[in-house]
Design a protein around this nucleic acid. Structure first.
Lengths: 249, 249
DNA sequence: TAGTGGTCTAGACCACGTT
DNA sequence: ACGTGGTCTAGACCACTAG
């Protein structure tokens, strides 16, 4: 019933910061969890108990608890109570950014060379990736991206003509396919896969690789509604590119 | 002033679903954005306008708008208004999961072989990664992880003795270093980097690779407070492992 | 039946930016 | 001065789960 420690924690937070009440309540709760005073799976005081102990309206307590739930700190079950969530930093994340943005963010110059742009029948693999019948007409583009004139990405892309009928008429030295496609077909979902591969002779030549150095291959598919808009293979020289991510619990 | 389209949208959503009001308001707004009726950077009706048009309390409208803001759909500026956020799915994410969990999730059997476990002086690189003086004593472990007896990860890990003094006494065939370390030193932050590399002879031997196939290398550092707890190199055979991620806008 | 969280309201005061 | 979003309250009704 009495939660002197929590009340003390809160009043401590109350006094020093001029933050909104719901923020201070959140801070106090996170502190209880971080210090271990409230362990995972443990039930924490109910909304009405906090209202009584802290002298704050229930809506304010509710907002604090709701936000902490959506942030992964708490689990709530109607009719049961509120519990400390299990610390699960098991699935951390890596950013996958647009190549042109990434180069610009480094303060470098992006340029590209259009190697191929045509309509042709889909191979079996391509048809499967795009969700169209094998042999059906698709658009294909092959572009090398440079960072300060050094090749950093080989973009091998298939496009569903239904989603972007004017794809072949674009100037892909001025606009990247990714940007164009998001303009004509607002993307709603996507997936990507990363693996390490050895480039073949044609790929080595296009990227200007002399030895057989390993490359990162990102295979990305993008949807607009139920329709696959595009399927791309992005090949990066291992020595010139890294994926990076950081996280905070 | 009059927003017949929006009001119509909302009443449509209102009628069919028995969802909470704030949810229906959110859906209606998202629909306005998805269909392009409300374009990026465009100002949308104010809270009080929505209250008048939709006959809903301001707190309910406020909750809908607040949640959509935290979900990235909207931008709000006090004293100015609420605006449609720019669609920026530029930085998509890849999951990086714990190897044991990942194998278990596939319904396969995880096992591991402890190749090395010792205390030794830090090399220059290791010292830098851990944030300790070069030559200072650290713990080192080298473990091969198997999925159904096929090697899928080589885990080369340095540990800060300050953070985990009993590291050498653990049985790492029963508990993975990652799990042990999160137990003794609650992690608060981390970073990782992924690149494609060619494995050396020792690495090939430990992973049971015959040819010189490319590998994914994940370098991960983990903090507990201001202290680096551990720095690990995780090496995956390219043919046996892929990172995967999917996203929805 | 009693307690929990989930939602909603009508009204209020405030800080902020524009005019 | 005015309209904006940011916050807070006191009270209410409901759905759900447990004993």
């Amino acid at each position: 019933m009495a939660e002197p420690q929590f009340a003390a924690q809160l009043s401590a937070v109350m006094s020093d910061t001029p933050a909104p009440i719901y923020q201070r309540v959140k801070q106090a709760i996170v502190r209880q969890i971080r210090t271990g005073a409230w362990a995972p799976h443990q039930r924490i005081p109910s909304e009405s108990e906090m209202v009584a102990e802290l002298g704050v309206s229930r809506m304010t307590i509710n907002r604090a608890l709701r936000e902490l739930t959506s942030e992964g700190y708490l689990l709530r079950m109607q009719g049961v109570g509120t519990f400390v969530a299990e610390m699960k930093p098991q699935t951390e994340m890596l950013e996958v950014r647009n190549i042109a943005d990434e180069i610009a963010a480094r303060g470098h110059r992006h340029s590209s060379r259009l190697v191929n742009l045509q309509a042709r029948p889909a191979t079996a693999d391509e048809a499967q990736a795009l969700g169209i019948p094998p042999g059906q007409r698709l658009f294909h583009s092959l572009i090398v991206h440079y960072e300060n004139d050094v090749a950093v990405q080989l973009e091998d892309r298939c496009v569903n003509p239904i989603a972007a009928p004017d794809y072949l008429q674009q100037d892909f030295t001025r606009i990247t396919p990714y940007i164009y496609l998001t303009q004509v077909a607002p993307l709603t979902a996507g997936e990507h896969r990363v693996e390490a591969v050895a480039p073949n002779a044609a790929q080595r030549s296009l990227l200007g690789l002399t030895d057989n150095e390993p490359c990162l291959l990102i295979h990305r598919r993008t949807w607009s509604g139920r329709q696959v808009v595009t399927s791309a293979h992005l090949l990066y020289p291992g020595s010139r590119y890294q994926l990076f991510g950081s996280f905070t619990v």
